[in-house]
């Protein structure tokens, strides 16, 4: 049970998928034009990720390791088709908003990444916890970015106006450049926070064991880009 909670919570901060692991950036940048889009996309990924982790963990001993990637892709693609059909039936406006990014969940690195790194090696209940945690972290991050971009770019939050009268929206924030700028600044702020924390800890006299890079995983992005 302890381990279950540990796997569940690691996705919420320590290994927050888009910010810390830098996985699955395309939907992060493309659909966060508004907070509600972010939450919708996040829920879709949460659903696919949890179920694909569960299924892959269930069949992990049957799949020959040579064709495992193809099997993982087939499983996640099947789930994505299911999500597509469900969205068309019950959330059609959201489906139109997200457009091509719903089928593109298949090639979201985070799904394959978690399948390969976690679900293929761990028992079912831990794989589900991992999927839920990562999915929730992903949803949180997308909603956060979507909120910032919507508030600055359109002056609204979930469609309700929140800024003062006469506020001039920075239209650039809801366009493509705003996505890059917003994510870049968020990552920089997180790095800054981590560095400050480390410096404070070092000044308090504990040994300087921490690496100078802090929590930044930029060095590993070359290995995990797929």
């Amino acid at each position: 049970m302890n381990q279950f909670i540990q796997e569940l919570t690691k996705g919420l901060w320590k290994e927050l998928p888009p910010f810390r692991l830098l996985l699955g950036l395309c939907p992060v940048l493309a659909v966060t034009k508004s907070a509600s889009n972010g939450i919708g996309m996040g829920m879709a990924v949460l659903f696919v990720l949890t179920l694909s982790n569960m299924l892959i963990s269930l069949v992990r001993n049957i799949i020959p390791s040579k064709v495992r990637i193809a099997c993982f892709i087939t499983i996640s693609a099947t789930l994505v088709v299911a999500v597509e059909l469900l969205m068309q039936a019950y959330a059609y406006p959201l489906y139109l908003q997200l457009g091509i990014f719903v089928p593109l969940i298949v090639v979201n690195c985070i799904i394959l990444g978690r399948a390969e790194a976690f679900a293929a090696k761990n028992p079912v209940h831990l794989a589900i916890a991992d999927g839920l945690g990562m999915g929730l972290g992903f949803t949180m991050s997308l909603t956060f970015l979507g909120s910032i971009r919507e508030i600055l770019g359109a002056g609204t939050w979930f469609g309700y106006p929140v800024m003062w009268d006469g506020f001039q929206p920075f239209t650039i924030m809801v366009e493509a450049p705003g996505a890059f700028l917003c994510l870049g600044l968020t990552l920089a702020a997180m790095n800054y926070g981590t560095r400050r924390q480390l410096m404070k800890r070092n000044r308090e006299g504990s040994e300087a064991s921490a690496s100078p890079c802090g929590g930044c995983r930029a060095c590993s992005i070359g290995k995990s880009q797929d």
Binding site: L181, L183, G184, L185, A188, N191, R195, C216
Partner: peptide
């Protein structure tokens, strides 16, 4: 220093 690596690339 906080911007080095990925953040500056994104900007």
């Amino acid at each position: 220093k906080a911007m080095a690596g990925t953040p500056i690339a994104l900007i």
